[in-house]
């Protein structure tokens, strides 16, 4: 008996219609696929991407070389050397982040007492050699200068939660 029913059902193309109905449903549903790189997903202001070193408005670097980020870094990706600058202030002479070690946990950002080291929204960067991802102080400051507007906006947005 079952055999007979299946025989007639196959003529009615019921499976096809069932499948097409799924297709049809998704055809008219709103799209979720983002066409990267033409389109971008939305980002939180807490997004933790490429690191940057910030400056104050007068151009003075924020970092005071307290080494808290170096101490807190769970991946030991940060290397800092400090010395007294001619004007008597405590400044870093070396501030390196090895992005091949970094796990983007954001602890450095959180520990920083002067908001000097931050993680920007930038995640589209690459290195062609391993060494390319070893970011030094001038590189980090350059990133900071480039994205300062965005960084400042994000800090402001996050301020009320901190």
């Amino acid at each position: 008996m079952n055999k007979l029913i299946n025989f007639f059902k196959s003529f009615l193309l019921l499976e096809l219609l069932k499948g097409m109905s799924v297709t049809g449903k998704y055809f008219f549903a709103p799209h979720v696929t983002v066409q990267y790189p033409d389109e971008k997903t939305p980002q939180s202001f807490r997004f933790r991407g490429l690191h940057a070193q910030r400056r104050y408005a007068n151009g003075e670097e924020r970092c005071i070389g307290c080494k808290l980020c170096e101490a807190v870094c769970p991946a030991l990706a940060i290397k800092i050397e400090v010395a007294e600058r001619e004007d008597g202030t405590r400044r870093t002479t070396q501030y390196d982040i090895d992005l091949t070690k970094c796990i983007f946990c954001g602890f450095c950002e959180e520990s920083c007492p002067v908001d000097a080291i931050v993680e920007t929204r930038v995640f589209e960067y690459h290195g062609e050699k391993r060494g390319d991802l070893y970011y030094t102080k001038p590189m980090l400051l350059e990133i900071g200068d480039k994205y300062e507007e965005q960084i400042a906006k994000d800090r402001a947005a996050d301020a009320k939660y901190r």
Binding site: G65, C66, K67, E70, A71, V82, A83, E84, R90
Partner: peptide
Amino acid sequence: FRYTARNWE
């Protein structure tokens, strides 16, 4: 020693 190292290092 001023500014050369932190004691935890």
